[in-house]
Design a protein around this nucleic acid. Structure first.
Lengths: 208, 208
DNA sequence: GGCAGAATGGACCGGCAAGTCCAGACGACG
DNA sequence: CGTCGTCTGGACTTGCCGGTCCATTCTGCC
């Protein structure tokens, strides 16, 4: 059943991207298959041809599409957190990404509809978060190896906290329209890591 | 405005709570007015009698209801962040609250549907966040006055970062089912404040 | 007790959107 | 050049769900 010709694959892709765009503009709630059909200049039968599971399956595909973009947009910075300058560049990139995106997080939107019910959609987000966190943790470890971060810090925990701050910052950006929370969370998180560094000597009173 | 008898007010309240429960169980998407009607043993006409604006107005009332609970559940700790022990108690209370609640955040669920479209619902969340952040900031200021936090730290920014961490932690709890992110964010945030103290204090979490 | 207005019951409507179906065009491959 | 499976078009069905309406019952008040 998964025999797609190149033409078919292109159509499928067009549907996913068109659906993603429509959802970004109007939200999942107000996005009907007919909207997608109109935008992508396809027919009902094509939608169900490529997504036999109907709307749910399409939404899942959109979620994957958006999830991939999230990490891709942070590269190459996220993959090379090997200096404080790199951390700074990454931090700026994240903020910039969400500034550009405006008050919307397509993935969050999709998830809020499908996420709770279907395990499939939940897996998409969970996997994204895991990869994201792993990359941050790798950066922390790298800086520890370079002596720039206190080796006593648990990289996993630090990455978890940082990721939480980012997620919350984005969430607050959606509600308030301001990026201050995202920036504050990132800055505080990174600063915490920096301050932990054994600068002169162990931070017993003299440090910072 | 409409005049409500005591009986009417009770019915209205019953509808809001019933709707909130239903939404918590099934999500907004799968909650119909008929579901609410059945659970609250009311009739269609009552729903529209008390919420002339229809589903949207009801959802907004539910959002307010849930928003109030969020802060209420953190009291009295949140209002009295006057010692590290109090901060610790608050932190534990927040984690506990979301542990009890399980993998769901009714407010987030409601918001994701209504939040983007209607300014009313957005105002509910924004106001909640503002109050929340203000209380945290007050706690930071109090600790600064007590010499327990570096006076150079901007209370607003610290509160913003902490709040972002909480929100993200909760969000990740929804996806992953784990509370580690929430805990990590809270612990890191508080630890950062504590480490900033101009004088040596007992380690965070060390009791006493 | 009677009347204004609130509270309730439930039948009914209208529209919309997901999903179905079949007829037919296109394209690959021998 | 034929034939088979993929791809496409679009009309049609179906069921649901928000919302309306009116008839009836209750409640508070004088």
């Amino acid at each position: 059943m998964r025999t797609l010709t190149t033409k078919g694959a292109a159509t499928r892709q067009r549907i996913v991207e068109g659906a993603a765009e429509t959802i970004r503009e109007r939200g999942v709630m107000d996005t009907t298959l007919d909207d997608v059909r109109a935008r992508t200049r396809t027919s009902k039968s094509q939608l169900f041809h490529y997504f036999p599971g109907g709307k749910e399956e399409l939404l899942l595909a959109v979620a994957r599409f958006e999830a991939d973009r999230v990490l891709a947009d942070q590269q190459p910075h996220l993959g090379e957190l090997t200096s404080w300058a790199a951390w700074r560049a990454w931090r700026d990139r994240v903020v910039e990404r969400y500034r550009e995106q405006g008050r919307q997080c397509p993935l969050n939107v999709v998830m809020s509809q499908v996420g709770h019910s279907t395990p499939g959609a939940q897996a998409v987000v969970t996997e994204l978060m895991l990869r994201w966190e792993a990359e941050i943790a790798a950066g922390v470890r790298h800086m520890q190896a370079a002596g720039e971060i206190d080796p006593g810090i648990d990289p996993g925990q630090a990455a978890a906290a940082l990721l939480a701050g980012i997620q919350g910052g984005v969430l607050l950006h959606l509600s308030t329209g301001r990026l201050t929370h995202l920036e504050a969370a990132l800055d505080m998180g990174i600063r915490h890591l920096r301050d932990s560094a054994p600068r002169v000597s162990p931070p017993y009173g003299a440090g910072a």
